[in-house]
Design a binder for these strands. Structure first.
Length: 230
DNA sequence: ACCCAGGGTCATA
DNA sequence: TATGACCATGGG
């Protein structure tokens, strides 16, 4: 209906409500690019407070540094990251990422200047970096407009009637970003707001009383992703 | 004694 | 290709 005001899409409405309620989020909590990347690996399926302990341990040991991490003794690194869990797996993943970054001498020029698709593909080649971790790094370490989809995102939109539980990551991201401006700051805020919101009120057990999205929650409708064009 | 957390990989059917 | 097990620790 041309001429009539277009109603906002669901992702836009959710963003507006979350931003109005929780305010601007200060993300990613890291003092350097390498610290952000290390944190992105350590926080895989792990509560952030446990990651903080590991990161502070690394900081105290002067290990928030790619070269230092690569040359540090394996047992000592594992000991320090132990609070973040999965230390054997995460040690291997950290080393794999650091070696990958060492290929470009821990210089960020290429990461900042190559196309988003190229950088994403490069990150995904690293064993232990999946789509979510790669997009977090793209978004928060390299300020690229990569839309992050995590379990909270699926849960939150699931509450709003979106039947996405098993749709591919890229499909969900493409749908959510479709009606949003391509904007790094916006994407960064969006992901942070979803995490903040879900940690507070959108737990696995539904708590929709008093939730800021209650207006949207009241009448869940099946919202399936459109069929993939390819 | 459960369940959960800012995922990803691998083996199996 | 689609589930399930596994990885490990700390807090509720």
């Amino acid at each position: 209906m041309p001429g009539l005001p277009q109603s906002d899409s669901l992702p836009e409405r959710v963003y507006d409500l979350l931003h109005a309620h929780w305010g601007p989020q200060d993300w990613w909590p890291a003092e350097s690019t390498i610290e952000m990347i290390i944190g992105a690996v350590l926080t895989q399926n792990t509560a952030w407070r446990n990651v903080e302990k590991a990161i502070e341990g690394l900081r105290a040991a002067d290990l928030l540094d790619g070269s230092a991490l690569l040359s540090a003794p394996e047992p000592s690194v594992k000991q320090v990251i132990r609070p973040a869990g999965f230390h054997n797996v995460k040690y291997r993943r950290l080393m794999a990422v650091m070696r990958h970054l060492a290929d470009r001498s821990f210089d960020w020029t290429w990461w900042q200047e190559a196309s988003l698709a190229e950088v994403r593909a490069s990150l995904l080649k690293v064993h232990g970096l999946g789509p979510e971790t790669a997009d977090c790094i793209l978004l928060y370490a390299f300020s690229r407009p990569a839309f992050v989809v995590d379990a909270y995102t699926r849960r939150l939109f699931g509450r709003l009637g979106c039947a996405w539980s098993s749709d591919p990551y890229e499909d969900v991201a493409a749908y959510l970003a479709r009606d949003l401006p391509v904007d790094t700051t916006l994407y960064g805020q969006y992901h942070a707001l979803i995490v903040t919101h879900c940690k507070a009120v959108c737990k696995k057990v539904p708590i929709c009383q008093g939730c800021v999205l209650n207006l949207l929650c009241t009448r869940p409708v099946e919202r399936n992703l459109p069929p993939r064009s390819t």
